[in-house]
């Protein structure tokens, strides 16, 4: 383990294993300009393509912006309009519901990952590929297949239900059902990614702990609860952060699965879809920038909050 981990440590920590504060100061003095030179390309890229656009968007959110440019300062107008816009709250609620449903996939992924990582399981890598495939497939392609599955008249899902005498709903064209349908596909396609991360976390749990707990007479279920889950919390935390951020950014799946002209879209749209429709369909780009800043702040707050909370439940020492 020590050998495996050492490359990820910084060089000075091996050269001078002193206390943290001393180590940092010494490194800065000794390394001079070179670390900055190596980081510069990345820094320039992030600065140019991430930080600068964010600052610009923040500025544009205070302007009224014509289709072909020509922003004029309009103060807090966009934000006041946004907060009074009922569509914002519909979109926010939809995004939260979607995120909630997709998060149900995390415990499911923990369970599935531990099943796949059962020692001596045959075809384990085959299963791993099977679960990971949806994640690497294009969201649009995935959505088109699910669109056919969900079809109310001719879809395979309603056909299967009809065998049991159930008349299935029009999944993607009934308000309510449509959001659930999108979330189910979102859950399904993110499962593989979560399982890979959690699987790697599982591999890092020393087998001695299982042996020891077995000697102490722990059952498989008890082992899962008292050894696997606590030692997996850093991975679970990572998966949670990534899942929440990507769920808040729901767009392509929704767009492709429901279709932009779907009548249920106003009742089903996510925040990012709302941003898109205002900025790129209605050409109201200053307003769209305000929506984007809203999403940005929302994700920022939720993420910081998660990092605060993690101290209480993530096993870090």
């Amino acid at each position: 383990m020590t050998i495996k981990l050492s490359p990820s440590r910084s060089v000075p920590s091996i050269a001078a294993p002193g206390t943290r504060s001393r180590r940092g100061g010494a490194a800065a003095r000794r390394d001079g300009i070179w670390p900055w030179v190596f980081v510069l390309p990345l820094l320039a890229g992030v600065g140019l393509f991430y930080i600068w656009p964010i600052l610009q968007t923040a500025y544009f959110s205070f302007t009224t912006w014509g289709v072909f440019g020509g922003a004029t300062w309009s103060g807090l107008n966009n934000y006041l309009r946004l907060l009074a816009d009922p569509q914002l709250y519909t979109a926010l609620a939809n995004t939260l519901i979607y995120t909630g449903i997709v998060l149900l996939g995390v415990p499911l992924a923990v369970w599935l990952a531990s099943l796949i990582n059962t020692p001596g399981l045959r075809f384990a890598s085959f299963y791993r590929v099977l679960f990971f495939l949806p994640y690497v497939a294009m969201p649009t392609a995935v959505a088109l297949v699910w669109r056919i599955i969900f079809n109310g008249d001719f879809g395979i899902l309603n056909h299967a239900l009809s065998i049991f005498g159930i008349r299935g709903p029009f999944w993607i064209s009934t308000p309510g059902f449509a959001l659930v349908a999108v979330a189910v596909v979102g859950l399904w396609s993110s499962l593989g990614f979560a399982m890979i991360i959690l699987g790697a976390g599982l591999k890092n749990i020393p087998p001695e702990l299982y042996e020891a707990s077995e000697l102490d007479g722990a059952s498989r279920a008890r082992q899962f609860r008292s050894v696997t889950v606590p030692l997996l919390t850093p991975s679970i935390f990572f998966v949670l952060i990534i899942t929440i951020i990507s769920s808040f950014q729901l767009f392509d799946l929704l767009y492709a699965l429901l279709g932009s002209k779907n009548p249920v879209m106003p009742k089903t749209m996510s925040l990012v879809f709302y941003f898109y429709s205002q900025g790129f369909v209605s050409n109201d780009k200053g307003y769209a920038a305000a929506i984007a800043m809203f999403i940005f702040l929302l994700i920022g707050i939720v993420t910081v909050w998660q990092f605060r909370l993690q101290r209480r439940w993530v096993n870090n020492d």
């Binding site: 991430y50 984007a292 940005f296």
Partner: peptide
């Protein structure tokens, strides 16, 4: 990841 969202606006 958070930055990614804002980059949408780019």
């Amino acid at each position: 990841g958070v930055l990614g969202t804002a980059a949408l606006v780019a």
